[in-house]
Structure formats: structure tokens, C-alpha cells
């Protein structure tokens, strides 16, 4: 059972008050739904998993550990996210790598499975994910600061990554609220082979 560590969340509220809304986004109910989608569909038992643009891996890492992944790499460019990740995550075989997946992909160790559920944050994954690898890609069409690659369909994900085979797709609708108001947005999912 995935456990969001409330003790850590409480500490982060005081240690990183200016980052807390970002942390809350990463442990939101919608984020749980997004991570659970791939966790229910991929057998990671005994496999190495690379979580791209991972944030601090709030749900992704516990899912990997719970489901028996041999090793999980959380890969994210943000220095504060790394600080938080190293404090929040305990146990299991994993590491946090501070790398920009778009530009440093050649230095990412190879894995069996690649997961990126934040495709709206970055350039296309075509070069980042090696050929013949199982992957799950997800992204959304929400207008929000930092979203530089709005995903408007599952086909966007397939085309951007250059997948050779599509195994499963899905679309979910969520609500988000900020200074622009309360609004619906769509989250797209693709499981496939690069």
C-alpha cells in the first residue's frame, strides 16, 4: 500500500514553505490516479525503472518498491526537488539523479522500463528513451506555468516519442484551480514500446 508520509509533509511545510504548493501538487489525488494507471499495467518485478522528470517520486517510487522493481532511478533537474527526495524517500533500491533528461539523456543509465508522466514539462522523449524499451508516457493540456509542451491527445505522445508499438491508451479528466480560476483539463496516457 502506497503511504504518503505525513510526517515528512509536515516538516516540508516549515522547511520549504515557498515550495510547499509544488510538493502538494506532487501528492495530490490526481497525481495518485496518474501514477496508479501505469503501476496497475506494468510488471516491474525484478526490473530497473527510470522515472523521468520524476519530481521527488511521491507515488512513483513507492509503487516501484511495492511491486518489486530491482532498482528505481528518480531523474529530475531541479536541485530543491533532489533535497526533498533524499529526505522523503527511505528504504528500497533507488537513487535520485539531478539531471536534465532533455539534454543529459546520454548519461542516464539504461533501464528496462521508462516512465514519464510529466511530458507537458519538457521536450519530446524520442531521443531520451532507447529503442525497444517498454515505456509509459503521460501529459496534459493544462495551462499552467512551466507547461511548455501541452499534450492534446494520445497521438501527441506516440508521435513525440516515436513509439513503434502502442499497447494501451487512456484519457482522464481532472480539475485544477489557481489564479486563472477553476477548470477541467485532460490527462493522456500511452503504454507502448519505443
Amino acid at each position: 500500500m502506497v503511504d504518503v508520509n505525513t510526517h515528512h509533509l509536515h516538516l516540508f511545510k516549515f522547511d520549504y514553505p515557498w515550495f510547499y504548493s509544488n510538493i502538494c501538487d506532487q501528492v495530490s489525488a490526481s497525481e495518485y490516479e496518474i501514477q496508479k494507471w501505469w503501476a496497475d499495467r506494468i510488471d516491474v518485478t525484478g526490473k530497473e525503472v527510470n522515472i523521468l522528470n520524476s519530481g521527488f517520486g511521491a507515488y512513483a517510487l513507492p509503487f516501484c518498491i511495492e511491486k518489486g522493481a530491482a532498482y528505481t532511478r528518480l531523474i529530475d533537474m531541479d536541485p530543491i526537488t533532489k533535497e526533498i527526495s533524499l529526505q522523503a524517500n527511505e528504504g528500497g533500491s533507488w537513487c535520485h539523479m539531478m539531471m536534465d533528461v532533455t539534454f543529459d539523456y546520454k548519461n542516464i543509465p539504461e533501464a528496462d522500463v521508462y516512465i514519464n508522466t510529466s511530458c507537458e514539462h519538457s521536450y519530446h522523449m524520442k531521443k531520451v528513451i532507447p529503442n525497444n524499451k517498454l515505456c509509459v508516457l503521460s501529459g496534459c493540456d493544462l495551462t499552467k506555468r512551466g507547461h511548455i509542451n501541452l499534450i492534446r491527445s494520445c497521438d501527441d505522445l506516440v508521435e513525440q516519442a516515436g513509439l513503434s508499438k502502442v499497447i494501451d491508451t487512456n484519457k482522464m479528466t481532472f480539475l485544477y484551480e489557481d489564479e486563472l480560476g477553476r477548470r477541467e483539463y485532460s490527462q493522456y496516457f500511452v503504454k507502448g514500446i519505443k
Binding site: 515557498w18 529530475d76 533537474m77 530543491i80 514539462h121 512551466g146 511548455i148
Partner: peptide
């Protein structure tokens, strides 16, 4: 200022 609050908060969104 403020322990880098502004830039640290916004690093990941290229600001």
C-alpha cells in the same frame, strides 16, 4: 534574498 526563495521556487519552471 530570503534564502533564495524566488529562484529556488521557480527553477524547475525555467524562471
Amino acid at each position: 534574498g530570503n534564502d533564495g526563495e524566488e529562484w529556488k521556487r521557480q527553477y524547475h519552471i525555467t524562471r
